[in-house]
Design a protein around this nucleic acid. Structure first.
Lengths: 259, 259
DNA sequence: CGATGTATTGAACTCGATCAAACAGTGTGG
DNA sequence: CCACACTGTTTGATCGAGTTCAATACATCG
């Protein structure tokens, strides 16, 4: 199902939207909670609806015209950029409350593709011209700007990770990033399920799947994490941070036991 | 010299600013050329001055409060993010007309450091609150937004390069990027001087200096470029593009001659 | 001139990729 | 309920692109 198709679906009534937001379990993370009542009222007039997408389905594709903006309501998605050669680069994973689809806002064409990692739902907001909206609702604009810049610094950090860090540090970065974002959502950062495959993690970090798998088991042998398939339990935040910060890549990590 | 020191220096008169812009050789690349006369008049009221910095000097440092925005008038600079471990990652090289210092605009703290690659000059614009300015001058805002998003897609492309591409493709990307940006400025894309060191290029592309050097000579042996120290001449755009686009890294590139 | 920063070239090594195989869940349909 | 296919994960063995170490060359400048 393409974004175009989504945009034309049923438009829910304002009353329902109010309830949707009031009862939303992601409302604390959602930018709408930081809008004034007045702005929020205006904002809700442009709500299209609430849509569910299944694992593997794409919300929009790089090159699509931007007709709307999404806020992730539940589930998780990945966003990636595509290259000529056919290989993609995952640029981020997103969780409830995250704003989806602002890259490429300027000339109204998506620069990335967004795909669901599990059954997920989004709030869709139809815009005709983002720039006009910005002028009409300064606070909304500020929130979008805030998110845009947060995304940007996230990408800069990823550049550092991809350009300079060893496989261990990359994995440490990934785990710390995920945990901190889950914590910010009031979830446990020490006991959670990964919704993305090893392949996704590998792609995101510029590694091979096998390397990801190997390092996860290494971290497990070193008692830094306990991992079983998609579930991570009892994660040692402190030690992971040490790995992430250490420029030396001299890490036994329990592999001497194997020898 | 820090940004703080710069900000307190002599403020030139409006008339001078007018001339500065009118006579500026980078004016076609500068966002001011895309502002309405009215906006431009307002914008010039907040011009601080025109400052020159030498090679190695920094315009601002990651963590500095943002007191002003810069537009590169002449020369070239690099911007980089710093990590705990002490290793930096260069996130971009900038040429005349480029807007410098908008990352971190939101909470008024620079997220990156900008350093001159050669003697360069910038136009400095003092702001107290960017968000207010945005509301007052919609067109100015649009231009900044435009640049911000351009930066963002540039960073996304770099993510792809760092995450997925071989050393050859990285170098090809770098050369093509530089040439296209020089061409956009009316300069020759086939005959130019690199203002950054091999070390800078290596850092930017996540490679070792030696690898950069080796691949440049390989490209030379394959008659794709002619390189002598910092000067690049007779660059074969077509062949570079082929290297950049090819997912296979099977490239003789003249190294069989050596064997 | 020597001194310093920058660039090239060679040789050896290593980290992570690639190849290959086995294993574990998860349906799906007979 | 089991056989089968299918996808995702782990583990082992080997290989190679790019790093690291080391030596040399080259340019610029006091």
């Amino acid at each position: 199902m393409t974004a175009t198709m989504l945009a034309k679906k049923n438009i829910i009534k304002l009353q329902e939207v109010d309830n949707t937001c009031r009862l939303c379990h992601a409302k604390d993370q959602c930018m709408t909670s930081r809008l004034s009542d007045d702005d929020l009222r205006h904002f809700k007039h442009i709500v299209c609806h609430h849509e569910t997408i299944g694992r593997g389905e794409r919300l929009f594709i790089s090159g699509d015209n931007i007709q709307s903006l999404f806020i992730l309501h539940s589930g998780s998605v990945k966003s990636y950029v595509e290259s000529f050669g056919g290989d993609n680069q995952i640029t981020g994973f997103h969780f409830p409350g995250d704003i989806i689809g602002i890259h490429g806002i300027e000339n109204n064409v998506h620069t990335d593709t967004v795909e669901a990692l599990e059954t997920s739902s989004v709030c869709e907001f139809g815009f005709t011209n983002f720039m006009d909206i910005f002028q009409a609702f300064p606070n909304l604009h500020k929130q979008l700007m805030h998110y845009l810049l947060k995304e940007m610094s996230h990408e800069q950090e990823l550049l550092l990770v991809l350009g300079k860090m060893s496989a261990q540090r990359r994995i440490a970065h990934f785990l710390l990033d995920i945990t901190s974002r889950l914590k910010a959502r009031g979830l446990s950062g020490e006991r959670f399920n990964l919704t993305m495959t090893r392949h996704d993690i590998a792609n995101y970090l510029g590694l091979a799947v096998e390397t990801v798998s190997r390092i996860l088991t290494r971290l497990q042998n070193a008692n830094i994490i306990a991992v079983e398939r998609r579930s991570i339990t009892s994660l040692n935040h402190q030690k992971l941070k040490e790995i992430y910060d250490s420029s030396e890549s001299i890490f036994g990590l329990g592999q001497e036991h194997i020898k």
